[in-house]
Structures are given as structure tokens and as C-alpha cells.
Measured scan of single mutants.
Amino acid sequence: DELEKRVKKIARKLNLSLDQVEEWLKRNNNDELVEAVKRLKKK
């Protein structure tokens, strides 16, 4: 979905793993995208 695409884009842009992106999003209080990261990690 759109949020998952955004997460992947962030990960690529910042050259981070999904775990690192998740931490980064949590620090930025971006719950919506944190949920998207969790969905991606399950895939």
C-alpha cells in the first residue's frame, strides 16, 4: 500500500534496515508509518 511504499522509500533514501527505520519513526512519533513497517516486516 501507499504507506508501505513510503517506508521502503525512506529506508532506501536513508540506507537503513526496516528495524532502523522503525526506531527512527518511533522517535518521530509517526505511528501510522510504524504500523506500515510492522506489516512489511511480516512479509
Score class of each variant (00 low, 15 high):
residue 13 K to A: 13
residue 15 N to F: 07
residue 30 N to Y: 15
residue 22 E to Q: 07
residue 16 L to Q: 02
residue 30 N to D: 11
residue 15 N to E: 06
residue 3 L to Y: 10
residue 23 E to K: 09
residue 35 E to D: 08
residue 20 Q to K: 06
residue 40 L to C: 05
residue 28 N to F: 13
residue 16 L to W: 13
residue 38 K to E: 06
residue 5 K to C: 15
residue 21 V to Y: 03
residue 34 V to E: 08
residue 39 R to T: 04
residue 12 R to A: 12
residue 19 D to S: 09
residue 39 R to V: 03
residue 5 K to F: 12
residue 38 K to M: 04
residue 25 L to D: 00
residue 33 L to M: 08
residue 41 K to C: 10
residue 10 I to S: 00
residue 30 N to F: 15
residue 13 K to E: 14
residue 34 V to R: 08
residue 26 K to F: 08
residue 35 E to L: 09
residue 32 E to I: 09
residue 28 N to Q: 12
residue 30 N to H: 15
residue 36 A to D: 01
residue 20 Q to N: 03
residue 21 V to R: 00
residue 8 K to M: 15
residue 42 K to P: 02
residue 23 E to N: 08
residue 23 E to G: 05
residue 11 A to C: 15
residue 1 D to N: 10
residue 39 R to C: 11
residue 13 K to H: 11
residue 42 K to D: 07
residue 37 V to H: 02
residue 42 K to M: 10
residue 40 L to V: 05
residue 12 R to N: 07
residue 43 K to P: 03
residue 16 L to P: 00
residue 37 V to L: 10
residue 14 L to E: 01
residue 7 V to D: 01
residue 11 A to E: 00
residue 14 L to R: 05
residue 33 L to P: 01
residue 27 R to E: 10
residue 38 K to I: 11
residue 37 V to S: 03
residue 18 L to A: 03
residue 8 K to Q: 14
residue 11 A to K: 03
residue 22 E to V: 09
residue 30 N to I: 15
residue 11 A to P: 02
residue 41 K to H: 03
residue 15 N to D: 05
residue 9 K to H: 13
residue 37 V to P: 01
residue 25 L to E: 00
residue 26 K to G: 06
residue 31 D to R: 10
residue 7 V to R: 02
residue 34 V to A: 10
residue 33 L to F: 04
residue 22 E to R: 06
residue 41 K to Q: 07
residue 4 E to S: 05
residue 29 N to Y: 10
residue 26 K to N: 06
residue 38 K to D: 03
residue 39 R to S: 07
residue 24 W to R: 02
residue 11 A to S: 05
residue 8 K to W: 15
residue 7 V to P: 00
residue 19 D to L: 07
residue 15 N to H: 13
residue 8 K to H: 11
residue 18 L to P: 04
residue 11 A to D: 00
residue 2 E to R: 10
residue 19 D to Q: 07
residue 23 E to D: 10
residue 22 E to S: 04
residue 21 V to I: 12
residue 34 V to Q: 07
residue 12 R to V: 06
residue 24 W to T: 00
residue 24 W to P: 00
residue 27 R to P: 01
residue 5 K to A: 14
residue 37 V to Y: 03
residue 38 K to W: 02
residue 25 L to N: 00
residue 13 K to Y: 13
residue 8 K to I: 15
residue 21 V to N: 00
residue 23 E to T: 06
residue 3 L to V: 05
residue 19 D to G: 06
residue 13 K to S: 13
residue 9 K to V: 12
residue 42 K to L: 09
residue 2 E to K: 11
residue 12 R to M: 11
residue 26 K to D: 03
residue 43 K to C: 11
residue 36 A to P: 00
residue 23 E to A: 11
residue 14 L to V: 01
residue 23 E to Y: 09
residue 34 V to S: 06
residue 32 E to K: 09
residue 8 K to P: 01
residue 36 A to V: 09
residue 2 E to H: 09
residue 13 K to W: 14
residue 33 L to C: 09
residue 22 E to K: 05
residue 18 L to S: 02
residue 38 K to Y: 02
residue 39 R to Q: 07
residue 9 K to C: 15
residue 6 R to E: 13
residue 15 N to G: 15
residue 26 K to I: 12
residue 42 K to R: 12
residue 35 E to F: 03
residue 43 K to W: 12
residue 30 N to P: 04
residue 42 K to V: 09
residue 42 K to Q: 13
residue 16 L to T: 01
residue 43 K to N: 06
residue 30 N to C: 15
residue 9 K to D: 15
residue 1 D to S: 11
residue 21 V to C: 06
residue 11 A to L: 14
residue 28 N to P: 01
residue 27 R to T: 09
residue 24 W to N: 00
residue 4 E to L: 08
residue 33 L to N: 02
residue 31 D to E: 12
residue 11 A to I: 13
residue 30 N to M: 15
residue 17 S to R: 06
residue 29 N to Q: 10
residue 31 D to M: 15
residue 12 R to G: 04
residue 10 I to C: 15
residue 2 E to S: 10
residue 17 S to V: 04
residue 38 K to R: 14
residue 40 L to N: 01
residue 5 K to P: 02
residue 25 L to A: 15
residue 10 I to F: 04
residue 32 E to G: 05
residue 24 W to F: 12
residue 28 N to R: 13
residue 6 R to A: 13
residue 5 K to I: 13
residue 19 D to V: 06
residue 24 W to S: 00
residue 13 K to G: 06
residue 2 E to I: 12
residue 14 L to Y: 15
residue 2 E to T: 09
residue 20 Q to Y: 04
residue 8 K to T: 11
residue 29 N to L: 09
residue 15 N to V: 03
residue 17 S to A: 06
residue 19 D to R: 06
residue 21 V to Q: 00
residue 31 D to P: 14
residue 36 A to K: 02
residue 41 K to F: 07
residue 21 V to D: 00
residue 40 L to Y: 04
residue 43 K to Y: 10
residue 9 K to T: 13
residue 10 I to H: 01
residue 25 L to H: 00
residue 22 E to M: 13
residue 6 R to H: 08
residue 1 D to K: 11
residue 3 L to H: 07
residue 29 N to T: 08
residue 14 L to W: 11
residue 36 A to C: 07
residue 6 R to Q: 14
residue 6 R to T: 12
residue 30 N to A: 14
residue 28 N to C: 15
residue 17 S to K: 05
residue 18 L to T: 02
residue 38 K to A: 06
residue 5 K to R: 14
residue 4 E to W: 10
residue 29 N to H: 13
residue 4 E to C: 13
residue 19 D to T: 09
residue 12 R to W: 10
residue 17 S to Q: 04
residue 37 V to T: 05
residue 10 I to P: 01
residue 21 V to F: 08
residue 17 S to H: 04
residue 5 K to G: 08
residue 40 L to T: 02
residue 29 N to F: 11
residue 32 E to P: 06
residue 9 K to G: 09
residue 3 L to K: 05
residue 29 N to V: 07
residue 7 V to C: 06
residue 33 L to S: 01
residue 16 L to V: 05
residue 3 L to S: 06
residue 21 V to E: 00
residue 31 D to W: 15
residue 36 A to M: 05
residue 12 R to Q: 11
residue 10 I to W: 05
residue 27 R to M: 12
residue 30 N to V: 12
residue 2 E to V: 12
residue 37 V to D: 01
residue 35 E to R: 07
residue 18 L to Q: 02
residue 19 D to K: 07
residue 43 K to I: 07
residue 34 V to K: 05
residue 42 K to C: 15
residue 39 R to P: 01
residue 42 K to E: 11
residue 33 L to A: 02
residue 43 K to L: 10
residue 2 E to Y: 12
residue 12 R to T: 07
residue 14 L to D: 00
residue 43 K to G: 05
residue 43 K to Q: 07
residue 37 V to K: 02
residue 20 Q to M: 07
residue 41 K to N: 03
residue 29 N to P: 05
residue 5 K to Q: 14
residue 28 N to G: 13
residue 16 L to C: 10
residue 9 K to N: 14
residue 36 A to Q: 02
residue 39 R to I: 04
residue 38 K to Q: 11
residue 19 D to N: 08
residue 41 K to E: 03
residue 5 K to Y: 12
residue 14 L to T: 02
residue 22 E to Y: 12
residue 27 R to Q: 13
residue 16 L to S: 01
residue 20 Q to W: 05
residue 14 L to M: 10
residue 41 K to M: 09
residue 22 E to I: 14
residue 35 E to C: 13
residue 39 R to F: 03
residue 6 R to D: 03
residue 5 K to L: 13
residue 40 L to A: 02
residue 7 V to W: 05
residue 16 L to K: 04
residue 28 N to L: 13
residue 32 E to V: 10
residue 18 L to G: 00
residue 25 L to I: 04
residue 14 L to Q: 02
residue 11 A to W: 10
residue 41 K to S: 03
residue 27 R to F: 12
residue 2 E to L: 12
residue 36 A to W: 06
residue 31 D to Y: 15
residue 23 E to I: 09
residue 23 E to Q: 10
residue 13 K to M: 14
residue 10 I to R: 03
residue 7 V to S: 01
residue 30 N to E: 15
residue 25 L to C: 14
residue 40 L to Q: 01
residue 33 L to Y: 03
residue 36 A to Y: 04
residue 2 E to W: 13
residue 1 D to P: 07
residue 32 E to Q: 10
residue 27 R to D: 08
residue 17 S to C: 12
residue 40 L to H: 02
residue 10 I to K: 01
residue 41 K to R: 13
residue 40 L to W: 06
residue 34 V to F: 08
residue 39 R to M: 05
residue 35 E to I: 06
residue 20 Q to S: 04
residue 37 V to F: 03
residue 39 R to Y: 02
residue 19 D to C: 14
residue 7 V to A: 05
residue 3 L to D: 11
residue 37 V to N: 01
residue 15 N to A: 08
residue 16 L to F: 11
residue 39 R to E: 05
residue 26 K to E: 06
residue 39 R to N: 06
residue 26 K to H: 08
residue 2 E to M: 11
residue 17 S to W: 09
residue 42 K to S: 11
residue 12 R to Y: 09
residue 12 R to F: 09
residue 4 E to H: 03
residue 18 L to M: 05
residue 38 K to F: 00
residue 13 K to V: 13
residue 6 R to M: 15
residue 37 V to M: 04
residue 40 L to S: 01
residue 4 E to I: 12
residue 2 E to D: 12
residue 34 V to T: 06
residue 32 E to R: 09
residue 10 I to A: 03
residue 31 D to N: 12
residue 40 L to F: 03
residue 43 K to S: 06
residue 8 K to R: 14
residue 2 E to Q: 09
residue 24 W to D: 00
residue 36 A to F: 05
residue 41 K to A: 04
residue 36 A to H: 03
residue 11 A to Q: 12
residue 43 K to R: 12
residue 33 L to H: 02
residue 15 N to P: 00
residue 34 V to D: 04
residue 12 R to S: 09
residue 26 K to A: 11
residue 26 K to S: 10
residue 25 L to G: 08
residue 35 E to T: 05
residue 20 Q to A: 09
residue 19 D to A: 11
residue 35 E to W: 04
residue 10 I to D: 00
residue 9 K to L: 14
residue 34 V to L: 15
residue 27 R to K: 12
residue 26 K to M: 11
residue 17 S to T: 13
residue 8 K to N: 08
residue 3 L to F: 11
residue 14 L to P: 00
residue 9 K to R: 14
residue 21 V to A: 03
residue 21 V to M: 14
residue 2 E to F: 10
residue 36 A to R: 03
residue 9 K to M: 15
residue 17 S to D: 10
residue 4 E to K: 05
residue 32 E to N: 07
residue 32 E to T: 08
residue 20 Q to C: 14
residue 36 A to S: 03
residue 16 L to N: 01
residue 42 K to F: 05
residue 12 R to I: 09
residue 37 V to W: 05
residue 22 E to D: 04
residue 20 Q to R: 06
residue 34 V to C: 09
residue 15 N to Q: 10
residue 3 L to N: 09
residue 10 I to N: 00
